[in-house]
Design a protein around this nucleic acid. Structure first.
Lengths: 328, 328
DNA sequence: TAGTAAAACACAAACGTTTGTGATATTGAT
DNA sequence: ATCAATATCACAAACGTTTGTGTTTTACTA
């Protein structure tokens, strides 16, 4: 039913081969005159190319797949923006798939969907694959890149912030502001990311000769609720005078709960968040944060895919900085 | 390089046809025994189906495309969740494409990408196509559905909230609370959505015998900044005692700016937002909102696509309700 | 004007799958 | 044991492109 290049060929009085070369932007094998003619009849007939056929014969596609864990946090927008920008410059299409929340089933489904379509590259943001899915990805022979996550498996290339340094610098920042009882909240302590931040936090405490109470470190899943729960643990008269929350939303959670307890921020309690999304400047008091360069992660991820097809790249860090606002 | 059904056929000693029927879940034309054998060798060889080939011959695909305007607001997540739920139940894949911010170029690109792939259906959330792109979509002969937007062109099916009623009920709610000077802020007054809400607002004012000052209605683009700008217009000693902001973010904008002016909410100024995303309960004071059922929009949109292939559906409304929190 | 090189084009195979139909094997009834 | 009916399978065409190579036309040189 749909119009094909054969229809165009017939109408324009040329061969399908010529139509193909004209329409796919090749420069050889035809004259300007026939090119004009072909393009005109293509437009007249309302031709839409059949990508399935194209990909079948060329065995490659111009789409980049982004698989994101439908995360509680909201930084993925920034990463995707970076990806889009780079994609646009290279005339690539990007499609986004949600892989749920630690849901191996959905992850597998998403992976299969994009592998079956033999996309040009796969960017995984904040998703931690189980071994089976990891195999699936690796064996697909499609360039891939993990973003905003640090993996146990060091063979897999990832681009993220240096989580140890995030923990360290955040802590140091608070110490420099005079705090010595510092909480560490809402990070997923089972994840490498959470573990590294915790390590950094511990190291910074130690380096400054500060004792730390294990009750000050409270795990979670980077979610808003984890922030409020942490604050509930700290209590109405918290021992800590400052807390590092491992996401913006979590930080808001601790702020809200603290305020419900009648605590004033930052006077009675300083709170520091990590991520630095727009949320930080929208809430009151505005959140002082460790701000990550998510956009840049997206950009670099795409560049990796484009420049190093299949070749395994090393993992790298993207810079971060501490932005002082009002909450400490 | 990749393993095909021919490879499997050879290894298993059957024909490609049989392999195809086994692997694609058909029930006829083969015995249990050969099915077992085929599946085993398929797994052994690490077979991945080539979707391009499948779609080429079957001329249909199991993917639903969601095109979203990379909106300032954040309700699209909820819509997408609804879509995903329904997709999962019908074993469909969903891919998401960003179409920028009122960017006809990107919209066209996104449309072409999905049309060329002849997806099974196209869901457009909060995107308002220009006429050219509208044609592109309509002529593609693929089921489509607009979500969370009301269109000038009534021929195009959309599912959204009744924006007139949103404006009307929000206003009425405030009037019932004793307000008579009510601002209307941050809606895009060039959009049908904004216009309808404004109409509803006006009607409610009139129905209650209230005069309205044209200075009270301030346009925008549903963004945070539009909220703060609106509040700046209202000034330190605003004539209005309540304002309806057309998005959660915008509402937060007016709250913040109002507080910067030393106004207390809701004592000095009541603010009401429309959308009702999680943001409302995260900010302090919590936002009283007109809460839309975005998830439901996604669900219904998918159902439309699934049940009414190609047939033009009527536009319908999804319910909304007013949720009282702290800001009025 | 004849000859030749290059430009313009057409042919046909190939990509990996699905599916209608024809061929063969199996089963059951008599 | 014979036959029909059915179950199991293989053949081959088709989907819409791309692309290597062969063929014709054009343009240029001498």
């Amino acid at each position: 039913m749909a119009v094909t290049i054969k229809d165009i060929a017939r109408q324009a009085g040329v061969s399908p081969a010529t139509v193909s070369r004209v329409l796919s932007g090749q420069t050889e094998f035809y004259s300007e005159k026939t090119a004009k003619k072909v393009k005109k009849t293509a437009k007249k007939l309302g031709y839409q190319k059949n990508t399935a056929a194209v990909e079948l014969v060329t065995r490659r596609s111009k789409v980049i797949a982004v698989i994101v864990s439908s995360t509680q946090t909201n930084f993925s927008d920034q990463i995707i923006d970076g990806i889009q920008q780079e994609a646009r410059q290279h005339d690539l299409n990007v499609i986004i798939l949600y892989a749920g929340e630690k849901d191996p089933q959905m992850e597998r489904k998403a992976l299969e969907t994009v592998i079956e379509r033999s996309v040009m590259g796969i960017l995984l943001v904040a998703v931690d694959l189980n071994p089976a899915n990891e195999d699936l990805l690796v064996n697909a022979n499609i360039p891939y890149q993990f973003l905003s996550i640090t993996l146990k498996n060091r063979k897999l290339p990832f681009i993220t912030s240096d989580d140890f340094q995030i923990g360290y610098q955040a802590t140091k920042y608070l110490v420099d502001k005079g705090h010595s009882e510092i909480g560490f909240a809402a990070a997923d302590l089972n994840s490498v990311t959470g573990q590294l931040r915790l390590d950094g936090y511990r190291q910074a405490m130690a380096d400054n000769g500060l004792q730390l109470n294990s009750a000050w470190v409270l795990g979670g899943d980077f979610a808003y609720e984890d922030g409020v729960n942490a604050m509930k643990q700290y209590g109405r008269e918290p021992e800590v005078t400052a807390v590092i929350a491992s996401s913006d939303l979590a930080a808001i959670g601790v702020m809200n709960q603290a305020q419900d307890y009648g605590l004033r921020i930052p006077a009675d309690l300083a709170v520091m968040s990590v991520d630095g999304t727009k949320l930080c400047s929208i809430v009151r008091p505005q959140l002082t944060s460790v701000t990550q360069e998510f956009f840049e992660m997206g950009v670099r991820g795409m560049q990796r895919i484009i420049n190093q097809p299949a070749k395994a790249a090393k993992s790298t860090f993207t810079p971060f900085k501490i932005i002082a606002r009002q909450s400490v």
